[in-house]
Every structure is written in structure tokens, then in C-alpha cells.
Write a protein that binds this DNA or RNA. Structure first.
Length: 665
DNA sequence: TCAATCCGTATC
DNA sequence: ATACGGATTGAC
């Protein structure tokens, strides 16, 4: 069918377009002709609509060019949705690198990178142009009394950033509240970056951390230079902020994981807080992790400084220290002694001296006593496991968790049956008897924390009980006599510091069948413990768990050694993050076909270890591929090619590839 | 000899 | 996915 004769753009009449197609074998740009009428709007980076294989698809112009090398007859560009160049060349390159690393499609990554359009926000958008910045209002940096100056190598690191360098650091921050807490570190690092004439990108796990970071920045950086990118702020705020970054108005971007794609130019620093938090892992294909995104960004272009920071240390961060990619910036012993609380292991005191109320609340006596004393001097934090981790069946009298009499497995009441059942061996228990008090009445611990808060409150008559958990998170608490019961990750900050913290349910967290159970537990402990006052001001942390290494790390306040031991163990077992892992899921033949693609890597020095396929769920099968870093990019390339071939030939139903999804292990 | 259908392949 | 082209089949 002949195209209707149409006048084309006089110069660069060809637009190269990436289309939003989910098909892996179409993951490449296609060329279109630009009609003269669209010449002005059809700029590189603009959103467009094009005809593609008989459908109307969205896409982005990545390039305008004089001619095409496609060899086929080109279609004409249908429509420029918006002339705002939302896809910058740097972000496109980032998306391509991310797609390659995770064996995904550029189209999938673009969906994560670019926020949905809100036309009203574009009304009078213009790029800022080359107006020189007025940096005269920025504070002295690094400040002699600043947060960085307190850490070994901290001032030198910041100086290096300020001088325009691109050093990499794993930073272990000892304090979680007060004037030297982590938000100050990030704010000061952003200022150093601005001083170097470059821009900074700071990523945090959630909205609460974002608020704290914004508050710290507000003291140091003019408000107009800061943009905040968070899905929680809603589509129009997110898009408006995105456009402020795109236009060059914002020079410091703060946000949650999707902010890692912010179209910030002249990047001088990328930083991520608490990189071990699993909310940094994107739950949509191709499942990239914010830490990896930022590391890629730090290596793009001129190179940017990179900070991986936390109160503890992820095994990934430890690996980067050990292989020399990052230097370790941490507090020396004297500073730790000065600012950290006393940590006491109370696991051994459980069966001594019982207070009936404390027993009902499942509190070791020593912990109960410490909390009771501390309440007179300040707020007290009780960290409990989330509902999902808690045993599902408790004694109605004394709240002792009930266990299977045959195998010690956890009991639950199945949706269909009336009698309790063991989760491990499946035994049905027509009657259950509490081993502590002999009661035969049981209760289902459905809304875990509320119950616990109530019980804990009863153990501390006179205390004001505040509970904080997912959905009802308190940001801040203060005052003596306040007892805060918080689930993992929902701990409010006490501006004056907690007088004490009780870390309960550690054994339950450690017992989870997950590669990261210990690492994750230790991370949660340090996050809570860093909110407690220094030992010299009476601050105390009571931890109840039997895992010697984990408890020891907290008692000695030594997250780095713990991470090193964990990593050493993973290395020995050839498990992540000592190697990368790709999970292949789908119908059996599709999975087998994909794993076949890795055959060339199954011999030689850096051998890929393949486990599976084994039945997974819903009739699907799963294969795990453990891939040494030396061959990881080749493995990703092979898997991506195999996926494309399978989807082109439709010989197999789709199988999913997921790299580094550690929650699966 | 032509149309209806099937299969394979490309999709600007 | 769809859409198109070339091959194949079946009916005049």
C-alpha cells in the first residue's frame, strides 16, 4: 500500500524510536519518517506514538538522523505525544546497561525509569539553560565539626568529593538520631558535591527516611535546588519533580529506588542509605536493585563518587570493600565507645526468676527490668517481629508459642480445617497442651503487634504505650515513660534518643529459611540500636537471641566483621553475593531451554553451577544458576539471546529470568 | 486457474 | 501480539 505523499522534515527526516513492546526479540530501535509538521516536536527524548506491526504503540525518539539503514520501507511517525525530552541520552544508556545486566529488555527498564506523563505539569516547562549557579550561600564543607570529620577517613573522603573526585565508600554510620545521624552525612556529602560544581543523587528506602533527609538538607541547601522523587507523593508531584530535574533546576535529587533513574546531569555523587534493605530491589521485571543502578551511574560519563551507607553492612557492600572497589569509612573504637549504647544478651536469663506479667509478654526478666528502669529516664523501644514471622498459634493463657509435639514445627489453623496443624509435618492436633502452663486453650496471633503491644503494656503498669507498625507507622516519639512497640523497620525516631531498646523475637527472625536471615536480623538490630543513647548516658540494648555470631556482632558493635564472616561463608558455599544467581521460572521445557543456553559456561575456570529444574508452584518449574562474576555479563547476554530466540520462534511458552533475587533463596 | 487457508517470519 | 508473503490445497 503506497504511503500518502507527505512532506518530510527537511533535515534529519528519520527518527530512531524505541517502542514499548514486551517482546524480547523486538528490543531494539526502529526507524520512522518524520513529517514536516512534526519536525519541531520530534526531538530526541520525546514520547511518541507509532504504528508497529499493526498496533499503535508508545515509544521514545532516541535519535534524529539523516537516513536509515533498515533496508525496508519506513512508516511515518504518527504523533508526538509530547515534545518534552523525557528520555535523556545518559538515562537511555543507563537503561541499556541495566537491561543487559539483568537479561531484561530496555523497554521494561524504561517503564521503571520514566514516570507517567501528567500533561498539566508540562504547561510552561522550559529547560533552565546555562545560568551560572550561586554557590555563595552553601556552608563551609567539610565542616570541622561536621558528621564526616568524626569518622576515620571521613573528612578525606569528603574532601576528595569536593575536589571533583569520584571515590567509592562503604560508610558505617554509628548514630541513628541527633546531630550526627546519617541524614547529616548525606546532606554534607551533597554540599561537598555542589562545591565541586556537580550534582548529587541520594536514594533511601522509604518515605520516612526521605522526610528525615529532606529536613537535614533544608539546613544546608537552598530549597529550590532539591528535588524529591517518590512514587508515594503521587503521579503529578512525581512528574513535576522529574521535570524540575530534567530542566536543570534541581541539583540534589533525593528519593526512593525509582529516583535512581533521575535525569540529573553532571553527576558527582550517588549515595544509597541502608543498601541491605530489600525495598531497594524493584519488584517488577527485570528486578534491578537500586544499589546496582547507582553503581552503574557512578561509572557512567566522567565518573561519580559513590556511597553505600548503613548502620550495618550488607554482604554486597563487604564484597566491594574486599575487592577494592570501595574503601571502608567507619568509626574508630573511641568514637564507638562514646556514642553507642551498652548491649546485653538476655537469652540466658529467660528461665531464671520469672515475673508473671513479663512471662505473659514473653519477656526475659533482665530485659523487663532494664526497660522498667529506663522508662524513668526516657522513651523505651521494643522491637518485635512482624506478624508474618511470628508463630501463628499461641497459648491463650500465657502466650507461649505452641509447637508440634512430634517435630517441634510451628502450628497453625488451616483455612479449611478447625483443628491446629503442623506446618512442617502436617500432623493434625485435636488437642494442644501448653508446655509452660498446661492450658489447652489457644489463640491465633493474627494481628501480632497490637496484641503484643497490649500485653507488653500490661507488663509495664503506668507506661504510655505507643505502637508503630506497617500502615500505622509513627515517625517520632519522645518523653520518659513512653513505651514504643514497633515492628521491624517501623521504629520511630526519638529526638533525645531511646533510654533503652529491647530486641525481641530475634530467634524467630534468625530461624527463617532464607539465605539472608542472619544478615537481615543483624541489620534490623543495628537500625534499632543506633536509635538508643550512648552507654555513658545510660543507654542500653537488650537482645534476646541464641545466634552467637549475630548477637556478638551487636554486643561488640562490629557490623563489618559480621558481614565479612557471612561473606566468607557464602564464598565457601558459592552462594550470592559471592556469585550472582539467575532464577529461571516457567513451564518445564521453557526453563530447560533457557538453562541450555548457559551450557558454554558450564566448563572452564569460572563454571556456572546449575540447580534444577525442580517443581516450583502453579505447575511451574525453577532452575537456579549460580554464576561467577567473571562470566556474569556473558551469562546475562546468553540468557537474553535465548529468551529473544524463544519468543521469536514461539517454540516455548515464556520463561522468566530473574537475576539476584535473593529473597528467593 | 483462482481463492481460501496454512505456516513462517518480520515487525521501522 | 499482528500482518504480510509465499506455499499448499481444494473446487471450478
Amino acid at each position: 500500500m503506497p504511503e500518502p505523499p507527505e512532506k518530510l522534515a527537511a533535515t534529519n527526516p528519520v527518527a530512531r524510536v524505541v517502542v514499548e513492546s514486551p517482546l524480547p526479540h523486538l528490543d531494539r530501535p526502529f526507524d520512522y519518517l518524520v513529517p514536516d509538521a512534526l519536525d519541531g516536536d520530534a526531538v530526541a527524548g520525546a514520547r511518541v506514538r507509532v504504528r508497529f506491526a499493526g498496533r499503535e504503540l508508545h515509544g521514545y525518539i532516541v535519535e534524529r538522523r539523516e537516513d536509515s539503514d533498515s533496508g525496508t520501507r519506513l512508516s511515518v511517525l504518527d504523533k508526538v505525544v509530547s515534545p518534552v525530552p523525557v528520555l535523556t541520552p545518559e538515562v537511555l544508556e543507563l537503561c541499556r546497561l541495566v537491561a543487559a545486566r539483568y537479561a531484561g529488555t530496555v523497554s521494561d527498564v524504561l517503564r521503571l525509569a520514566i514516570p507517567g506523563r501528567v500533561a498539566s505539569c508540562e504547561k510552561d516547562w522550559t529547560p533552565r539553560g546555562d545560568v551560572p549557579d550561586d554557590d555563595s550561600s552553601l556552608p563551609e564543607n567539610p565542616a570541622p565539626e561536621g558528621a564526616w570529620t568524626r569518622l576515620g577517613k571521613g573528612a578525606a573522603f569528603l574532601q576528595h568529593v569536593r575536589a571533583g573526585g569520584d571515590p567509592h565508600a562503604v560508610v558505617t554510620v554509628p548514630e541513628g538520631y541527633g546531630p550526627h545521624a546519617w541524614p547529616e552525612f548525606f546532606a554534607e556529602a551533597a554540599v561537598a558535591t555542589l562545591h565541586s560544581g556537580r550534582n548529587a543523587l541520594l536514594v533511601v528506602p522509604d518515605r520516612r527516611d526521605l522526610d528525615r533527609l529532606a529536613a537535614a538538607l533544608a539546613h544546608l541547601v537552598p530549597r529550590g535546588l532539591v528535588a524529591r522523587l517518590s512514587a508515594e507523593d503521587g503521579p503529578s508531584v512525581r512528574y513535576r519533580e522529574y521535570l524540575r530535574v530534567l530542566g536543570g533546576y534541581a541539583r540534589v535529587v533525593i528519593g526512593t529506588r525509582a529516583a535512581s533513574y533521575a535525569p540529573l546531569r553532571d553527576l558527582g555523587l550517588v549515595a544509597i542509605w541502608d543498601d541491605g534493605d530489600d525495598v531497594h530491589a524493584e519488584p517488577r521485571a527485570p528486578y534491578p536493585h537500586a544499589r546496582e543502578l547507582l553503581m552503574i551511574r557512578s561509572s557512567q560519563g566522567q565518573g561519580a563518587a559513590c556511597i553505600l551507607a548503613g548502620h550495618s553492612r550488607s554482604t554486597e557492600a563487604e564484597r566491594l570493600v574486599e575487592n577494592g572497589w570501595a574503601q571502608s569509612v567507619e568509626a574508630d573504637r573511641p568514637l564507638l565507645r562514646a556514642v553507642t549504647p551498652r548491649v546485653v544478651n538476655t537469652a540466658d536469663s529467660f528461665h531464671q526468676e520469672r515475673d508473671p506479667l513479663a512471662t505473659a509478654a514473653r519477656l526475659p526478666h533482665a530485659a523487663w527490668q532494664a526497660a522498667k528502669d529506663a522508662l524513668a529516664h526516657g522513651p523505651v523501644l521494643i522491637q518485635v517481629a512482624r506478624g508474618g514471622y511470628a508463630p501463628t498459634l499461641l497459648c491463650a493463657e500465657c502466650s507461649n508459642p505452641l509447637r508440634c509435639s512430634k517435630c517441634e514445627g510451628p502450628l497453625h489453623v488451616p483455612a479449611t480445617g478447625a483443628a491446629p496443624e503442623c506446618r512442617w509435618c502436617g500432623t493434625v492436633h485435636r488437642t494442644v497442651t501448653c508446655r509452660v502452663c498446661g492450658s489447652q486453650r489457644y489463640t491465633v496471633a493474627g494481628n501480632g503487634v497490637l496484641r503484643t503491644a497490649e500485653q507488653l503494656g500490661r507488663a509495664f503498669p503506668g507506661a504510655r504505650v505507643v505502637s508503630s507498625s506497617a500502615g500505622r507507622v509513627k515517625d517520632e516519639v519522645s518523653g520518659a515513660g513512653t513505651l514504643v512497640v514497633a515492628t521491624l523497620g517501623a521504629e520511630p525516631v526519638a529526638p533525645e534518643g531511646y533510654a533503652a531498646a529491647l530486641l525481641l523475637d530475634g530467634d524467630q527472625m534468625l530461624r527463617r529459611e532464607n539465605l539472608r536471615a542472619a544478615e537481615e536480623t543483624v541489620r534490623r538490630w543495628f537500625n534499632a540500636a543506633s536509635l538508643v543513647r550512648p552507654a555513658r548516658d545510660g543507654g542500653v540494648v537488650m537482645v534476646t537471641a541464641e545466634h552467637e555470631l549475630a548477637v556478638g556482632a551487636l554486643v561488640r558493635w562490629d557490623p563489618a566483621s559480621f558481614a565479612a564472616r557471612e561473606l566468607a561463608e557464602r564464598r565457601e558455599l558459592h552462594l550470592p553475593p559471592a556469585v550472582r544467581v539467575a532464577a529461571l521460572t516457567g513451564p518445564k521445557d521453557a526453563v530447560e531451554n533457557l538453562q541450555q543456553a548457559l551450557a558454554p559456561l558450564q566448563e572452564g575456570e569460572h563454571e556456572v553451577r546449575i540447580v534444577g529444574p525442580v517443581p516450583f508452584d502453579d505447575g511451574d518449574y525453577r532452575t537456579l544458576c549460580f554464576i561467577p562474576f567473571a562470566v556474569a555479563s556473558e551469562a546475562a547476554r546468553l540468557l537474553r539471546a535465548a529468551k529473544a530466540a524463544a519468543s521469536a520462534k514461539r517454540t516455548h511458552a515464556a520463561a522468566q529470568v530473574r537475576f539476584d533475587g535473593l529473597d528467593l533463596l
